[in-house]
Simulated scan of single mutants.
Amino acid sequence: MKIHPLLGFIAAALMLPAHAQQSGTDAARDALKKQEGDTDQTTLLKQTLTAVDKQYSLIKRGKLAATYDFSYSYIGQEKINADITNGNLTLFNIENDSSHTITNTVSVDYGVRDNLTASVVLPLVSKYSENPAFSGMSHSIGDIGVGARYQPFGVQRGRPSLTVNSTLRLPTGKSPFKVDANQDLATGSGVPQLSAGVAVNHIVDPVALFGSVNLTYSGAAKDLNQIRGTRVLTRVEPGMAFGFGVGFAYALSYGITTSVSIQESIARGTKLYFRDGTVSRTKTQTSGVLNLGLGVRVSPKTTINITAGIGLTENSPDFTLGLSMPLSF
């Protein structure tokens, strides 16, 4: 083994034997190597992607993983509440609405195969609202989700990774079309939702680029009997929605990563059917959010991710805050 001239000079000065010179060099080199359990930047980026958006990572066959997610969102707005009967304006007032929503979610993933992961999502929703109709709190289970993520191609270093994902949301939360707006708050969508999409991520250490597109189809809410002003709502047919997102994550060090992403969703208008035969349709809804994230490695196997979101459109939450961390059994 070739000895660095500086090390040879120091060894000669100290009159060390040759084998001691070599062992000292090897010890110094080993001390600088990545030790067992250390996390490099590429691994940390993968952990960040996994926690921020579960669709970017799969787990090994037969393995079980759980994640806890906390999210908070705030919506504040002024809206005009109007109702027209027989061509006459029977109701007109400006309402100030303020809504705070806290969601605690536990997600469980199971590796069906190395390239196929099944998941179950259980959300618990707490909502507080202040408006002229009702001011109070509501606690309930949200819409339970079951889904799958599939990687059709093997992951190769230096190449983009493709993941196909699908999720079915069940209307297990309180439906906004069945609660009395003067007495309670909804904690679910009220309709079943099926979404499918494709996600791509590419790690160019120390940067990870990622993006996704998805389509969401919602079933109809039937047999309703909800009073809306002077009319009774009997059926709701939500429109199809298209969403996409792009962003990147950057490893500042072996323990800290940052991420920036933009998400947007465009949904067609919803059809509302009333008992008097009237059919109304809402306008197209566009929701855009800018997310700023921070990932902190607290142990060799645990990274906590914190995300702050800023609404970019009228139909988006004004502010969101999220925290994601893996759970160990």
Rank of each mutant, 00 (worst) to 15 (best):
A12L: 05
A148N: 07
T270C: 07
S138R: 08
K46T: 14
D223G: 07
Y110S: 07
N86P: 01
N93G: 07
A208K: 02
G295C: 02
A118F: 13
N201A: 03
T216H: 06
N305L: 10
G173A: 11
D184I: 04
S175T: 04
R29T: 10
R157E: 15
V198S: 05
P317V: 08
E264M: 10
G311K: 02
F9L: 15
G219S: 08
I304W: 06
T230Y: 11
E78T: 15
N115T: 15
A133N: 11
T307V: 14
F134H: 09
N88D: 04
T282P: 01
T257M: 08
V296A: 10
N131I: 02
F134K: 06
S195D: 10
E237G: 04
E264Q: 08
V112G: 09
D143L: 05
S107P: 03
I306H: 03
V204S: 12
D30H: 13
G211Y: 02
F70Q: 06
Y74Q: 14
P317T: 08
P171E: 05
L292G: 06
G111W: 03
I80N: 15
I80V: 13
A196V: 14
G87A: 13
D53T: 04
A20T: 07
G188P: 12
S259D: 12
V191G: 04
M137A: 14
D184N: 07
Q156Y: 06
P192A: 03
N104H: 11
Q35L: 05
T234S: 09
E237M: 02
N225K: 10
R275C: 00
L16N: 01
V106F: 13
L116E: 07
G255H: 11
A208T: 03
L16G: 01
N291K: 01
M240H: 02
I256E: 09
S287P: 03
A199H: 00
T101S: 15
G147D: 09
V198F: 01
E237D: 15
G309D: 12
G8H: 08
D26C: 05
V213E: 06
V52G: 00
S126Q: 01
Q47I: 00
L14C: 11
